[in-house]
Simulated assay, not measured.
Amino acid sequence: MRKLIAFDEDTFAKLTQLGRDRMATIQELADEAFADVLKKHGIPIDLRDALRKSAAPSRAATPGKTRSRTRKASS
């Protein structure tokens, strides 16, 4: 799928320079940025990530060990 995204001139120049420095294309930089946003919000990036996430036990289903400390009353 092909979509267009507009950048202001300064941002585009900085992205172009970053691409040159890292020997990457603007597309590769965009792929990395969008993957980071999806990961930040807990959305699987690809099939492997989705399967890994679905196979992991949910925290609600398996309660973790919690310690509750009771304070000793001072006399």
Rank of each mutant, 00 (worst) to 15 (best):
M1S: 11
M1W: 11
R2C: 14
K3M: 15
K3G: 12
L4V: 11
L4G: 14
I5Q: 10
I5R: 12
A6T: 09
A6C: 07
F7H: 06
D8W: 12
D8F: 11
D8H: 04
E9D: 15
E9H: 07
E9S: 08
E9W: 07
D10P: 06
D10M: 15
T11K: 02
F12T: 01
F12C: 00
F12A: 01
F12L: 02
F12D: 00
F12H: 03
F12K: 06
A13P: 00
K14Q: 13
K14M: 13
T16K: 09
L18Q: 10
L18I: 11
G19H: 06
R20Y: 15
D21C: 05
D21K: 11
D21W: 10
R22N: 08
M23C: 02
M23K: 14
I26F: 04
I26E: 08
Q27W: 00
Q27S: 08
Q27D: 07
E28S: 06
L29W: 03
A30E: 04
A30I: 15
D31G: 04
E32R: 05
E32T: 04
A33T: 01
A33I: 06
F34M: 14
A35V: 10
A35D: 13
A35Q: 14
D36P: 03
V37Q: 09
L38V: 09
K39D: 04
K40H: 13
K40R: 12
H41L: 12
H41V: 06
H41N: 13
G42N: 07
G42I: 00
P44G: 01
I45K: 03
D46M: 12
L47P: 06
L47H: 05
L47W: 12
L47N: 10
R48E: 07
D49M: 09
D49R: 11
D49K: 13
D49C: 14
A50S: 06
A50P: 02
A50V: 02
R52N: 02
R52M: 03
R52I: 00
R52E: 03
K53C: 04
S54L: 13
S54E: 13
S54Q: 15
S54Y: 14
A55F: 07
A56K: 04
A56G: 01
A56S: 04
P57I: 02
S58F: 14
R59L: 05
R59D: 01
R59G: 02
R59M: 03
R59P: 01
A60Q: 10
A61Q: 11
A61S: 13
A61W: 06
T62Y: 14
T62S: 09
P63H: 06
P63V: 00
P63F: 05
G64L: 07
G64V: 03
G64W: 01
T66C: 05
T66K: 06
T66M: 09
T66Y: 12
R67A: 10
R69W: 03
R71I: 10
K72R: 10
K72H: 13
K72I: 05
A73W: 06
A73P: 14
S74M: 05
S74P: 08
S75H: 12
S75M: 06
S75E: 08
S75V: 14
S75C: 01
S75L: 06
